[in-house]
Design a protein around this nucleic acid. Structure first.
Lengths: 180, 180
DNA sequence: GAATACATGTAAAATGTTACATGATTTT
DNA sequence: AAAATCATGTAACATTTTACATGTATTC
């Protein structure tokens, strides 16, 4: 799956593993993420499968960059994946909910503290979507040939915003319920 | 992490791997899931680590059941995990959003079809939370010694409901936006 | 002087998925 | 007669995380 995220970016332009990590962190982090090490190993495997090819770009006073380029086969693979509709819902894993589910045994105060802490985290995240992320996308939508892309990126940003709002609302509800 | 889900259930009563899979499917599926095979291998590892012990329950005309019981060490491990507050937000992986993000190249009709299909799936899931799941929990809350647990389970069910509603709302917004 | 950014990666462990295998009983 | 359920599991593979390793240049 990470494979397709990387192909998606490489379909715009060539990048190094390092570049791709930076890109994901500022754009897809809201719905897709990967560790640096996984990106490197996945790219290597993709090159073996001939979906990408790499070459070394020498640099002075910095380690050399290994830059990846998408191949014909890579573009075909990406296009095919994009056109195949998803027939299922992504199953979630929410550690907080798992802990809550089994928390009847423990002191009620403990879980309340945890929930208030989580509320804080989600508020911070929400603010990021509404400022930093929003600004980046707005800049892109100014450029004529990025306009179509920017509209879709805005939709994914909006998801992050709605999700954070929903989460905070649920935390408020739950905290209130557990306090009584 | 699955380890703690299993310990959580085994802290109520002893169960076989098969039982645990059924339990997860009707109760935690909304925020935690696992394949049958992973449950079996994880239980085996937990026994090696002395968090659980198992014994065989012979059956006629059905394969024998291997029933797991939580140990003192297992209870301690569970309690410790529950009391350790979560300091981070769970990173999401949403394949639909990943596809959307890279969809500017493809025909707009394709992604719209996919989104309408997803709306259907989420509506079905929402209905399940509001009927089946709700009913199960209501029954539990009638019992005096399940009351505290049932209140927490209701909170996790509510999350599923709010999530599905949020998702549908986002799909509606996005569909409308892409149609124009 | 210390910390962070740049840039690469490997190795090992943990986690999760898919496919295979068995065989009786119950339901459609 | 076919399909689903009960119940167990193994093997192989894919994915993801954590830890380790290196060394320069820039910023605080």
């Amino acid at each position: 799956m990470l494979k397709y995220a990387l192909l998606g970016f490489l379909n715009y332009s060539s990048y190094s593993g390092y570049d791709l990590k930076q890109l994901m962190d500022v754009s897809t982090a809201n719905f897709w993420h990967a560790k640096q090490s996984q990106i490197y190993t996945t790219l290597k495997k993709m090159e073996k499968d001939e979906l990408v090819i790499s070459h070394i770009e020498p640099q002075e006073s910095r380690p050399n960059r290994r830059v990846y380029e998408i191949t014909e086969a890579g573009q075909t693979d990406l296009r095919e994946w994009l056109s195949q509709p998803l027939m299922t819902i992504e199953p979630r894993k929410e550690t907080l909910l798992l802990k809550l589910f089994f928390s009847a045994q423990l002191a009620p105060q403990r879980i309340l503290t945890e929930m208030r802490l989580q509320k804080n985290l989600h508020q911070t995240e929400l603010a990021t979507y509404q400022t930093t992320t929003k600004d980046v996308i707005t800049q892109f939508s100014a450029s004529e040939d990025m306009k179509d892309d920017a509209r879709l990126w805005e939709a994914t940003r909006r998801f992050g915003e709605l999700y954070a709002e929903m989460y905070i609302r649920w935390l408020d509800e739950t905290i209130e319920n557990l306090e009584s």
